[in-house]
Design a binder for these strands. Structure first.
Lengths: 233, 233
DNA sequence: TAAATAGTGTCTTTAAGACATTATCGC
DNA sequence: GCGATAATGTCTTAAAGACACTATTTA
């Protein structure tokens, strides 16, 4: 597949938008895959995606493709990187813009035969350069987890501390000490208690929290380069 | 300008690569601008850049454009983001991939009439959506300064602590306490002393340091999410 | 030997790690 | 009341902040 622009120069045959949809499922971080029907890589698992159109902003394309595949909109959508190596797509020169897309695990619709959630630490073989894209997405999520409110995409609007802890544990792959987890998340300034309690199960009811800001924001904690001078000229 | 691919679908008229070249000059962070000669925005300052070709990897295009404008290769080149809004370029559908490019201030060649260094906190009016791209680049640099070896791109191969401090100060816009600056940079694990001394000026000669790793790497310091459980099941 | 610059040591303050303890639910 | 779960308090340890001080050069 080739393209030429009106000035006679070679143009990309198209631009692909690829949402990397991550969600914690049963304690592990999973990614949404679809089975590819056409060549190349027919029959293998790949990330969902589709061609951008000139009338859409790139995030809109990513959002649309995501909704087509999952039935839900992403709570959090962030551009990851653009992959444009000449040989990455056998069909021709087709750069791909990857997006990190996070959705609350609670709103996922049931699996279908054409799409599947797979744990990111045990992926099946993927077509194109998609294994690398998944790795980049997971790295971005893990890297920002404690330094931003990126988890807003993975938790319901109101949540409890133990619930948040389990999500953080699924993403980072470690087990946190509950009281320290609580202290750190509170000190981050990203969440605040709503005053209500989660009732239902056994045990003391947990307090409900919510994110102060649902737009992308940075944590206040431990972002401390060396101190500035104070009492000197 | 329009393009159509061999399947009959609209294709981007091209993809632009735009290096955002940053360097500390006389204590302030500057960005390299060029004067645009053709419409649109003829006569106004813009970021350097050019069309990608199907035979190049995107970073190669950015690197090539950078070399054409400055005569030097970037020490550090990192993809920033892709800007693809339909209306961002009056010429047509031309997504732009921006790159953060850092070069050692010492290797810059002299200014020319067609290109100029401007301080990032007092920019002239820029064409296209380039003001936003500069803001994004500066934010990326500032954000990674203390958490990665990104400064490898802004310092000569061997440098002194005061030299590094002045560069860090130019980027972050704050003044560091020298002994704490030294302690933090050493504890980061990113640099190590070479054993040699910088001679010349007045005052005690400074020890020379170099980066342990010149490839992108993360700092060891203070990247501490809450502790894991240890003595429990 | 004075001015200038670089480097070391250390006391104080703040944040994180590691629990023990207390609180509140359903059964 | 008992098991289960959530929340609080606190002692210990480690890191950062704020300096005072020492060291080594050139003029």
């Amino acid at each position: 597949m080739t393209a030429v622009n009106s000035s006679g120069f070679p143009a990309p045959a198209g631009i692909y938008a690829v949402p990397v949809v991550l969600a914690p499922l049963s304690g592990r971080l999973h990614v949404l895959l679809v089975r590819r029907v056409e060549a190349p890589f027919a029959g293998t698992w790949v990330l969902p995606g589709g061609f951008m159109s000139p009338s859409e902003r790139p995030e809109e394309t990513a959002q649309r493709k995501l909704t087509e595949k999952t039935g839900v909109g992403a709570v959090y959508l962030e551009q990851l990187e653009t992959y444009g190596d000449p040989e990455r797509d056998p069909r021709g020169w087709i750069p791909t813009v990857a997006y990190l897309a996070l959705i609350d695990a609670a709103v996922l619709r049931a699996d279908e035969s054409s799409s599947r959630w797979e744990p990111v630490d045990a992926l099946p073989p993927l077509g194109f350069d998609h294994p690398r894209i998944v790795v980049d997405a997971v790295e971005r999520l893990r890297g920002k987890l404690w330094w931003s409110n990126i988890a807003v995409g993975l938790l319901p609007e109101r949540f409890t501390m133990p619930q948040a802890r389990r999500v953080f544990e699924a993403i980072s792959g470690v087990t946190y000490e509950p009281s320290n987890f609580r202290r750190e998340l509170e000190q981050s300034g990203l969440v605040h208690a709503t005053g209500t309690l989660a009732k239902g199960g056994p045990g003391r009811p947990a307090a409900m929290y919510e994110f102060v800001e649902r737009q992308p924001a940075w944590s206040l904690r431990r972002s401390r380069p060396p101190a500035m001078l104070r009492h000197r000229s």
